[in-house]
Write a protein that binds this DNA or RNA. Sequence first.
DNA 1: ATACCGACCTGTCAGC
DNA 2: TGCTGACAGGTCGGTA
Length: 305
Amino acid sequence: MPELPEVETVVRSLRRHVLGDVVESVWIGERRQPLKSSPSEIVSVLEAARIAAVRRMGKHIIMDLMIGPSGDRVIETGSRQRNSGQRFRSPDHPVTRSPDLSITRPADAFFIVHLGMTGRLLVARPDEPIAKHTHLIARLRSGRELRFIDPRMFGRLAVVREAFNTAGTEPLEIGFADFAALFRRRKTPIKSALLNQRLLRGVGNIYADESLFRAGIRPRRRAASLSRTELQRLYGSVRRVLKEAIAAGGSSVSDYVDASGERGLFQFQHRVYGREGEPCLVCGAPIKRVVIAGRSSHYCPKCQK
DNA sequence: ATACCGACCTGTCAGC
DNA sequence: TGCTGACAGGTCGGTA
């Protein structure tokens, strides 16, 4: 389900609801497929950890965790003393959350979540019914719960103690020269190259199709065959589409929601994805659907060359 | 090294 | 009503 804009939207809503909170206890379901770390490792790292940051890396959600004496206490606001280990209030003190206050030293560990196709990370009240396919619940000191739900179980959960990184470059951070270099001498279809997370991280099936439409490039074109002008159009359209989708809260094609359960709105701005047979919004020709690298690919046969 | 293709899962929907 | 098959936002690992 979730590509870069959806994951970014989830991260932003998680920041509003769990940043600075502390995990009190963790429940893990029976199914093991979603777990990339052992249940005991997940419990031992998460319990008593404070969520010091929530970030996105490609399609991964990363929570920076503070563990131990400085992790499971609330930082006292307004009295930050340099290098003092005694600047924390009791756990009962009301939590004041601020991104700046939270990072006073490197994180001790990281909670990594990939939503796969149908994964959801929801912030819920304890009395809300537990959805089918719930695989993990983290109860937080604030009284809220962070729940991971994933019917198809393509999503993954892990805890790591070293800094986490993935291959690929963020499409919203890369410059044009580096972008163009990614596709040089690549014989694979440009659609496949856009989906390759080791090149760009975060672009998925919807945004690859939408970007190629806006750039006027057919998805089957060999990546290396794109002219400099076409690469410039593609560079601009990838970034524009992703930014517009983030602003719209992502695309909710069937069941995607952010951490508060809100649906996105970008599906109403799709020009080709999911529109097979419907008229092109620019020229009226029927939108075609073909399969490339096993994925549905939608394009306008007249507007895209 | 690179690039397809099936496998991994469950749910939904169209067609019969 | 119920069955079957196609399809779904992603990523692996095996194979060519």
